[in-house]
Design a protein around this nucleic acid. Structure first.
Lengths: 232, 232
DNA sequence: GCGGGCCCGATTGTCTACAATCCTGCTTGA
DNA sequence: TCAAGCAGGATTGTAGACAATCGGGCCCGC
């Protein structure tokens, strides 16, 4: 069963104990999924009513989303949803290249045999996806994310996991969901995934890192090529 | 003139417009510098009195410090200063290796000639430091940080800069200040710094990245070796 | 007609006070 | 001795009010 990544990709429980945490999650989802469109101004009173909370917890949530770069706030002026800039995505890919490369290296060193077996199962399921040729939803969205998600977890480095899952991935997800970005290379990507797992299985951290960096580099180059057709 | 890194290493202005921002900065400094010791429980009322603010802005500051992993909070129980674990430092070094390696690569590609000239000046000043042999304060603290700080800025990648300066470096600084960690290798480190700048000057991103990763790896290995003498 | 300065409205920032919720530790009883 | 329950304390959430600040529009003078 292709255990899909947590809908929020977040460590926080879905029904967190405090109101501020729940508002944080809901607001984040609304931003990532595009319910709240980039550049929209968010009044505090308006948001408080929207989520049925008072301004206290709401402001705590806003501060956290601001530090995740999903919201932009100007003191005494207001809060707005961060814009989606093509240049930012390129920058993020550089960071992913570095961090996920390291994650692949550490995964090769630290993953358990069970985790590696799970990776192979995951890739088998991807290979059997009927719509692999049509680059439709599953593979590019849940599937690709799920693969990278597992490699990151496999690093067994809590700091690294937290940075990637907690800080970086939500920004990437925004582009996936809102720009319907579907690089038309699912088969190629699947092959790259397979080679990465081979390196991990061989416990060859150096190669795993190299392959992962190349894998992400290619996605970045794809975007750099289209940067002219512009996003904003 | 060796423009020293901002005392807070933060983008936020020292006299930020809002109270919450100021409290955030002051509280962060108190944690990083060890005024508030690891593990200490922080009552909201107590802190509010300490900084002369009400609970509102204080809680916003706490949330942000929590997401930076400087505070640990358990809902309905309390907030305490995050512990300093040796294992965490090792994890952070892995992340630095990946991110600062990438920063060095991008610096080689993107730094201006003026920035590179500034780097050489900085290293010249370090070389002339009389107490270089005694590994005293300046070099290891401000100096080393300053060098890495400039390389990071030289990447000209805002996302990367923000992650390293905003999220990672404050955690590292805690260890420097509170454990009086003075690896006894300032001369060796200086030589490594010089070779990195040489690679950047030659616009050789690959070598710059490799050298920076090695440089940071060595620091990590130093810590791994002492992990037994334990920190906690 | 045009530019600059000023005032007003709206929003954000902050504080106080109080109610509600939850954790912790102790007491009590079997 | 152990477990269940209760009380105390602290934190969390809410409400209301006021102060501070910013932006936009209006008016005046040139």
């Amino acid at each position: 069963m292709p255990q899909a990544p947590d809908s929020t990709l977040d460590a926080a429980a879905p029904d967190s104990r405090t109101l501020a945490d729940r508002v944080f999650t809901r607001l984040q989802d609304d931003i990532v999924l595009g319910v709240l469109k980039p550049g929209v101004k968010l009044g505090e009173a308006e948001l408080a009513a929207r989520y049925g909370v008072s301004r206290g917890p709401l402001r705590e949530a806003i501060r956290r989303l601001e530090s995740r770069k999903l919201l932009e706030r100007i003191p005494h002026v207001g809060t707005r949803v961060a814009a989606l800039k093509a240049a930012d995505l390129i920058e993020i890919y550089r960071v992913r290249e570095a961090l996920e490369g390291m994650a692949a290296r550490l995964a090769a060193e630290n993953m358990t045999e069970d985790e590696i077996a799970g990776l192979w199962e995951l890739l088998d399921q991807h290979a059997q996806q009927p719509d692999l040729q049509h680059d439709t939803a599953y593979y590019q969205h849940a599937g690709d994310l799920d693969f990278h998600y597992r490699i990151i977890q496999g690093s067994h480095n809590a700091t690294l996991i937290d940075l990637l899952i907690g800080e970086i991935y939500h920004r990437v997800r925004r582009y996936r969901y809102q720009l319907s970005t579907t690089p038309k290379r699912p088969q190629k990507a699947l092959g790259e995934h397979q080679r990465i797992v081979e390196a991990i299985e061989a416990r060859d951290g150096e190669i795993a890192e190299l392959l992962m960096r190349r894998h992400i580099s290619r996605a970045r180059e794809y975007w750099e090529a289209r940067q002219n057709e512009s996003v904003d």
